[in-house]
Every structure is written in C-alpha cells, then in structure tokens.
C-alpha cells in the first residue's frame, strides 16, 4: 500500500513538473501562427491541433524574479515558459521574450507558419505541409527540412537551406539571401519554372539548366537563369546577392 502511494505521488509530481515546462493552446479557428524570436527556434510537427511550447528542462527563473513576470518587446509572459501568446483575428502571435534560450515549438503539420528571427537566432522548421514564411533578419540561418511549400524565406547573413518533399504547385516559392548561401534540394521529378539569380556568387546545380543570354542582353542583376524543369510548373525563384547558390537533385 505504501508502495502504491509512493508511485502515485511520483506520477503526480511528474505531471506538475511537466506542466511547468510546457505550454499548450488550442488552434481552433487559427489560420496562421506567427513566431517572433531573437534566439534559436525549432518548429516541429505533432498530431494534436494545438500549439505546444517546450522550453526545455533547464529553464530556471532567477530567484530574484519570484512573483515577477518576464516583460519583453512582444508583451508580458502569459505562458509561464517565457513566451507571450496573443491571438489577433485568425492569427496567433507567439513572441519568444527571452534573449538567451532557444525553444521547441510543436504545431500540426498542415499549419501555416511564419517565423521571424530578429537577432542571432537560427530558424529550423521540419516536416510541414502548409505554407511557410521564414525571415532571418540579421545573423540567423534558416533550415527548412522536408517541407512542401509554398515557402517564402529570406536571410541576411545566415545560410538558407531548404529540402523539399513533393512540391505544392499552387503558389510561388521564393528563397532569397543577401550574404548567405542558398542551398536547395528538390525531388528530381519536380515540375517547376526556375528563376535563379546571383550578383556576386556562383550557381551550382545538377539539374539541366542553362544561363539565359537571349539577344546578348545583359541582365540588370548579374547572372540570371530562367528555365523550366520537368515540363514546367510552379515558379521557384532563388536569389543570392553575395553568396553562392546550390540547387540539388534529391
């Protein structure tokens, strides 16, 4: 009997501990989830139709902060995991208020997500079939694994790496980086119209594409390649101003 009580207590404690580290919110009526962070952010899929924020076991509020709320640019911490979550119409806005700890966020695979890193944070998104917008505004890199698109991604100094599953044909894909490399992998049978351009970088690919120099016209934006693969399809536009570009068959 004592043993049983002990196990029960342990389970109870476990639940409480878990509840302290996780935050969930239902996604009913939500079309877009916008995530704004200064630090690393990892977005993964799960099967429940809810937002789940895991800030990891190492999260510790300083002793001095007992009874106080974390306040940041995006508002005050209303989640107890260092995030501010606000609903605006059909959009859920998720601010990471902390400046030194990364976080894992779980969403259903079909969710449309927009992730913005405003400082050094790297963005990593994996396994989503909905629409993805990723913007690394300063030094962060972007890594999108096993996504279907439409994807709109932009990085300033970090690398932009995208690995596509089957590419959704409904609306354009746009991948730009100013100083980082643009590295994209597509299934080899993807039908698409490609527009690749770099100013100071080079383009490397194992797809059958050729630089377009019709009428000997020199492009305004350095090297431009416009071509269609597998009979043409959705428009995929890739641009790197100073970095190299890599387009791979998967």
């Amino acid at each position: 009997m004592r043993k049983f009580t002990f196990i029960l207590m342990a389970l109870f404690m476990g639940t409480i501990a878990k509840a302290q580290n996780d935050y969930t919110k239902s996604l009913n009526g939500i079309q877009w989830v916008k995530i704004d962070s200064k630090t690393d952010i990892v977005v993964k899929t799960h099967s429940a139709n809810e937002l789940l924020i895991k800030s990891g076991p190492e999260v510790k509020t300083p002793d001095r902060a007992k009874g106080l709320k974390l306040v940041g640019e995006g508002g005050t911490d209303n989640t107890n995991v260092g995030f501010s979550v606000v609903q605006d119409g059909n959009t859920l806005i998720v601010y990471n208020l902390r400046k030194n700890k990364g976080a894992e966020i779980y969403l259903p695979a079909s969710q449309n997500i927009a992730v913005k890193s405003t400082w050094n944070g790297d963005i990593e998104i994996e396994g989503f079939s909905g629409e993805i917008e990723a913007d690394a505004q300063l030094n962060g890199s972007i890594k999108l694994m096993d996504v279907n698109g439409p994807v709109t991604a932009n990085s300033l100094n970090g690398a932009l790496e995208v690995v596509f599953g089957k590419v959704t044909q409904s609306s354009p894909i746009s991948l730009y980086s100013t100083n980082g490399a643009v590295d994209v992998s597509l299934p080899s049978n993807t039908p698409a119209n490609l527009a690749l351009s770099t100013l100071n970088g080079n383009v490397y690919t194992d797809f059958d594409v050729q630089a377009d120099d019709k009428d000997g016209l020199k492009s305004v934006l350095g090297r431009n390649i416009n071509t269609s693969i597998n009979g043409g399809g959705v428009k995929i536009s890739m641009k790197s101003t100073n970095g190299n570009m890599y387009l791979r068959k998967k």
Partner: peptide
Amino acid sequence: NQSASKRIQGVN
C-alpha cells in the same frame, strides 16, 4: 492576401 506567397503570385 495575408500569405506572402499569394502576394508574390499576384505580383507575378
């Protein structure tokens, strides 16, 4: 449109 990709489609 709310979606950036759709806005790009509109521009195209």
